[in-house]
Design a protein around this nucleic acid. Structure first.
Length: 315
RNA sequence: GGUGCCAUAGCCAAGUGGUAAGGCAGAGGUCUGCAAAACCUCGAUUCCCCAGUUCAAAUCUGGGUGGCACCU
């Protein structure tokens, strides 16, 4: 199945490029963003507005309540359904977003096996970590799954616990589970456009400016509303909300919090780039090489058309 | 013009005779059920400059330069 994709760091211009591509190729956007899925977080997550969507159908945006738990597994399940639907409609799915884990899991068709996980196992492991220390758990993991243990640092407690949990819950080690999860292979044949900047500060400037715009659009009110309704859930990890807590509690000025938000967003963009850069299937376009959005779009369109033809020949 | 204080990485900063802590920023990286999360790695051949004392100087002495404060 032929699909197009636009990935890259936050504020690189994925949204507008994806919409233009959809207009040219009769496409529909399948969002690949772990935070834009939530309702009521439009400003902070920079979810596309009606106006930005330009009438192009967008899927998997703003449909989950922020107090609901969510996961990669669920994302993949939903995204695959969306893609099937779009193809059935004769349109081109354009997977767009910056959540690397979700993206790769979808594109590579990672299989997530049933787990009757009620959280009890994890809670116990957490308790043990507190009383016995992370090193004990890591040593334990070495005994059952050295491959995974070797790659983990003691400080990365969350992952140590998860690896142990997988084994306790399923009887299979995490490394074995990973192998099994790739057995199916992917039926998706993607042409992936990656957005990056030749000059990192070019991207960072865009981020800083976008945060200022978010503030003008009422981000603080959105954050206030968010915290009056939800707490401690997956959604509260989103950048753009927790940074205003010190301000809402009267501990810091709005300016200081805004600076912090910019900084966190820059760090996030860097992590996103680290994730995408290693994927050799991605065709990167440097946004600072183009003088306008149309120019960038033309180049991306060319690459996708070429990629589509190549995909045809394979069949 | 005089007196005092200060000068260490892009920024903040410890060190006051024994061979340059730490934090922030920045860069690079890891990633399979919370991922906008979590985690890892990396910056001074040298402490404003010059001379001196000493086995040894960012540390002591003298001079210079720059900044700050006060006085005139």
């Amino acid at each position: 199945m032929k699909v197009a994709a636009v990935v890259g760091p936050t504020a690189s211009g994925k949204t507008s490029l994806a919409v233009m591509l959809c207009q040219a190729l009769s496409g529909e956007v399948v969002s690949c963003d772990s935070m834009q899925i939530y309702k009521g977080m439009q400003i902070g997550t920079a979810a596309p507005t009606e106006e930005e969507m330009q009438g192009i159908p967008h899927h998997l945006i703003g449909f989950v309540s922020p107090d609901e738990e969510f996961s990669v597994a669920r994302y993949c399940e939903l995204a695959k359904k969306c893609i099937d639907g779009i193809i059935a409609r004769g349109n081109l799915p354009v997977i767009t977003g910056g959540t690397g884990l979700y993206f790769n899991s979808l594109i590579d068709n990672i299989e997530f096996f049933e787990e009757d996980n009620n959280g009890e196992c994890r809670a116990q492991l957490k308790l043990r970590a507190q009383t016995e220390g992370a090193q004990v758990l890591l040593d334990e993991l070495y005994a059952i799954d050295p491959e995974t243990a070797k790659a983990l640092h003691v400080n990365n407690l969350g992952r140590i616990i998860r690896a142990l949990e997988v084994y306790l819950l399923t009887g299979k080690t995490l490394s074995e589970t990973k192998r099994l999860s790739r057995l199916k292979g992917s039926e998706l044949d993607p042409v992936i456009i990656g957005l990056d900047a030749r000059d990192r500060s070019f991207l960072y400037d865009r981020i800083n400016r976008r945060v200022d715009m978010m503030l003008e659009s009422g981000l603080v009110d959105e954050a206030k509303r968010f915290y009056s309704l939800y707490s401690g859930k997956t959604s509260s990890q989103a950048i753009g909300y927790k940074e205003f807590l010190p301000y809402l509690n009267g501990e810091k000025s709005l300016e200081e919090c805004a600076e912090q938000l910019k900084l966190q967003t820059r760090h996030y963009a860097k992590r996103q780039l680290t994730w995408f850069k290693k994927d050799e299937r991605i065709r990167f376009l440097m946004i600072d090489d183009y003088s306008c959005a149309e120019e960038l779009f033309e180049e991306a369109l060319k690459i996708i058309k070429e990629g589509m033809q190549r995909a045809d020949k394979h069949k």
